[in-house]
Amino acid sequence: MTTYTTRFGSLQRYEKGGVEVINDDAKNYTFSNMFEVASMAKPYEKVAVGKNMEYVLEVLRAEGTSGWRAAAHDEFALVMDGEVEIRLRKLADPAVVPAGTRGSVSLNGTPDGQPMGRVRARRGHMTLLPVGAAYQFHADRPGVILLQTVAGADTQFRWAEICQTM
């Protein structure tokens, strides 16, 4: 029987595809690679690799311990490389994130509220960051998180640096 090898990418090992332009502008495809983006990013910077109106896909380089953040809507963290501990805390005062806020906000120190629990997530694991909760990431070694969220005050847009332009 044939054996198949499923190929995933990582910070250590990724290979980029690309756009072969025939009659077009490569910029129309905003082509990037999340491992390349994360390898150039500072820990927990929120770098957009996808944007559709107000919604974004952010790549986060997970390394060390992040600050606490919270959003006024659900967000989803998919670990694409490494191992990340995700810590959740129920917000005692949900108003620290005003209703209608887009994306997540940074919280000062550890927010008041009961610990809800934690998730140890490895490659391919997706975690719900529920509305009403604050979250913190921790990674002993560098990893990569893909975040499904809404563009917020801390979302970084650096398309010209990360995308194929010709």
Partner: peptide, 18 residues
Amino acid sequence: GAVRARVVMKPGDVCAMP
């Protein structure tokens, strides 16, 4: 239906379709 581009995507690649 006129051809515009070919795109090859490998693990970790992110790409928009206009």
